[in-house]
Write a protein that binds this DNA or RNA. Structure first.
Lengths: 219, 219, 219, 219
DNA sequence: AATGAATGAGACTTCATTCAT
DNA sequence: CATGAATGAAGTCTCATTCAT
């Protein structure tokens, strides 16, 4: 009664019925970023994320263990992306210390990195005690690495220029604070401060500190 | 939507103290700040606040209309306190423009203002789209006022010193970003950056910009 | 406004049965009717409803959006049931106008329709300003339809019998008031007035108004 | 040290500093009726009542024992008022049985009695199981009295007119149902049915039942 | 007699997580 | 792999009642 020759539903080529694990994960991380930007991290629920991703409710707990984990992986993703970006810029830049430093500066305000969507996530983690701790456990080493590199570059620049009375760590600290302060302003007053103006602010600061290096190249 | 006639099962166990409306309100605002610092704004519930205040659950809705309103009044309180502080410093400072500007700078890092508890609240509002809008509606005019004053002071200083190539608004913008960036670092890395170091960072920046004004008094 | 990451403390103790959306909705509507009859609409809480339905607290907000919506859908269900009942009776009745009118009358006191449980719901909506408005927005068109049909039937009966001094709308209005008044008495004094006696009351009234039509068939 | 001759603060005439108990109670009952009409009985809180009365929160529990008691006293007040009204009309009416019956009918639709505000309270009590029980415990004897009187009047009228096939209790029951049904329509569709039309409906019914009695007196 | 701040039980609602399908 | 119905803890808010003043 059932002699019809059945053919396998899934041929060797159509075996992958659904997206691969990695694709799904990235899809959900992107949706999380979008949702945090749109609804805030407190207004971001499994529903908002999965709805933006166009997937079903329960899938987050399937691919990530929990909401907490989803958030951590989202931050990790952004941190890695950010790191890769400035690190590549730093590596690819010219040989001069200033060039390398400016490459790092510019990386912070690159259109791919310095998005209001992504800034929303960063400041979501800055905004709450518990998440600040998570941030530190996940991102501190990256921040430290950049700080050390920046400090060393400043040291070289100071050496090159024979500047006096300038502490490399002091400048590096200044830069880190400026990145955050300017990004906060970009996030809060979108119309009032553009990425490019922010970049120029930092460069303006550096040109004041290292005047000899900026005499020729106004950038 | 409920209309069941309720009668309290348990008589009052603790004697009730009656305090003036203003005292209770401040008590609850203080508890809110403490709770936000301790648990984050998302982890701050009516329970955490009233427990810290040593009062009963329902009292917040009695004195403030809602949790949302409590948060807004808390921010308003801090904004007013902050404003009064720097504004008084600005008024009381010596007649020189730089003195006034430095007074404003110092006010930002004053031990009463620049507490990690209070910073927690500020950055809680920076951390989420919805709350950023609330922040702006409540604090923008204060921020604007300070920005205008700082800009004008910079203009005067530039005029006095005959500095060239410096844009007053540029410096004022820089200062605002620095306040935020440095405060974020104080909040995130308590051991690594003290209020005093932060203050010195800003002064160091200004001494680089306005060297003539700093020749004699290195502060 | 809360964003604490929650994790259920207790694993699921009862196995979860998954039913179709429509089945669950009807189950909850039935439970709502039962609860309103038992506890009143004010004493009907999400707990009473879900307990009667044997389901968990949160399920009402899952299938209906809110308690308010649950109540509205419950009323809509009863209104539709009632309408379908009298309308079918009206359609199925013999060709005579009186037959059709009596069919409508009888439908009001049919054992499936005229339950104390269901009457409880109707009068719950009559009992409060806000709910009266909801009732009107949901049921008015049905009531209007019946009123128009009844009026037309009365007009035909008057024509047939050559009755004088009788206004069709007047009789229809009388009938509508009688339905409500009698149902209220059934609801309030269960032992004192049966559905059947109520039906006979209305028929008695009509036989007084339209004597010729009742000469032969006393019903 | 304290030899000043003190005079009593409260002279014999100004002793009553505040309104008498009865005045306060009535003030609160009136406010309760207004609130029930405006907010529904479920939306009526101690606050809505005391606010309408222009008094302080805690006063209800002072003059009435509880909210429940306030509601019961409000119903009792209305029941007594209603009873006094129709009973006086019944007593004052002409000697004829029909006159007395019509006096009772008219009393139900008197402008002082048949207010939407007051109807709101009646139907609030009809609308919920628990309150229906309270209604019965408080008002049943009044309703019974009126039913018996009406029945007796109908018996007399039937006797006088020599009507056949009419059951006095049947007519009395009809009248009671009509009162409720018509009042419900007045409450729900204010524009559509006036007190006067309602009164005419009942009279129209009676004129159909007792035609001989209405031959001469048309109104 | 009156006020109104305070209490706390309980209502509605949200939502992370689970799991039958 | 994926879906989405279901659970239940926890949060916000309301409000009858109490009682110091």
């Amino acid at each position: 009664m059932n002699e019809v020759v059945r053919q396998p539903k899934t041929g060797p080529k159509t075996r992958r019925r659904t997206a691969s694990k990695e694709v799904r994960r990235q899809q959900l991380i992107d949706a999380t970023i979008t949702s945090i930007a749109r609804n805030g991290i407190g207004g971001t629920t499994m529903s908002t994320v999965t709805e933006i991703a166009g997937l079903s409710q329960g899938i987050v707990n399937f691919h990530f263990r929990s909401k907490q984990n989803l958030f951590e992986e989202t931050l990790t993703f952004l941190a890695r992306e950010h790191h890769d970006h400035w690190h590549k810029a730093y590596t690819d830049a010219g040989l001069g210390a200033l060039d390398k430093l400016l490459a790092i500066v510019d990386a912070h305000f690159h259109p791919v990195i310095c998005t209001r969507k992504k800034l929303s996530v960063w400041f979501a983690f800055y905004g709450e005690a518990g998440r600040r701790a998570i941030y530190r456990s996940l991102v501190d080493n990256i921040d430290d690495e950049r700080f050390e590199i920046s400090t060393e570059l400043c040291r070289l620049i100071i050496e090159e220029g024979g500047y006096s009375g300038i502490e490399p760590r002091f400048v590096a600290q200044m830069l880190e604070s400026l990145y955050d302060g300017l990004c906060l302003h970009i996030l809060m007053y979108p119309g009032s401060l553009s990425r490019d103006e922010a970049r120029r602010q930092v460069r303006g600061y550096l040109s004041g500190i290292f005047p000899k290096h900026f005499e020729i190249s106004p950038a």
